[in-house]
């Protein structure tokens, strides 16, 4: 039994996202790859705060709270999620402008047409 299986999964997810960003020249696919990389980072953080067999860190003063999971990484990742959503939305809006201007979403094709223009 390998320990830290969740960390390994997150690392491989990160490499997968990077591979998608490098291999595809379609800009939408690059954004999808970026989102996969972000998800991998979130997974690492959440996994770091996990306690095996733990319960959610919610309890009133009188109630028992044995073995709660760590609330701090979850709170931190909430910030990351919002930033990720904002960046994705803005990137998609920019992509729409690029498509209106160039008529294509292929990075190599856009670079070629820019060379023609100048």
């Amino acid at each position: 039994m390998v320990q830290n299986l969740e960390y390994i999964a997150a690392m491989l997810l990160y490499v997968t996202g990077l591979g998608i960003m490098l291999f595809h020249s379609n800009l939408i696919k690059k954004i999808i790859g970026m989102n996969i990389m972000e998800t991998a980072v979130f997974l690492i953080f959440i996994a770091a705060g996990y306690v095996r067999g733990g319960q959610p860190p919610i309890a009133l003063p009188g109630e028992p709270l044995l073995l709660p999971v760590n609330p701090l990484p979850q709170a931190l990742i909430l910030t990351g999620l919002v930033v990720s959503v904002s960046i994705t939305a803005y990137a998609l809006a920019l992509l729409r402008e690029i498509y209106r201007h160039f008529g294509t979403l292929d990075a190599a094709e856009i670079a070629r047409r820019k060379g023609e223009l100048t």
């Binding site: 320990q3 960390y7 690392m11 491989l12 705060g49 733990g54 990484p73």
Partner: peptide, 24 residues
Amino acid sequence: CLAALLVAVALDMPPLGEPSTPAN
């Protein structure tokens, strides 16, 4: 290369799910 490096790092991290890791 990156995957090998990252997996090596992951194997070296404190055991996941223990209440005694530095973060928890």
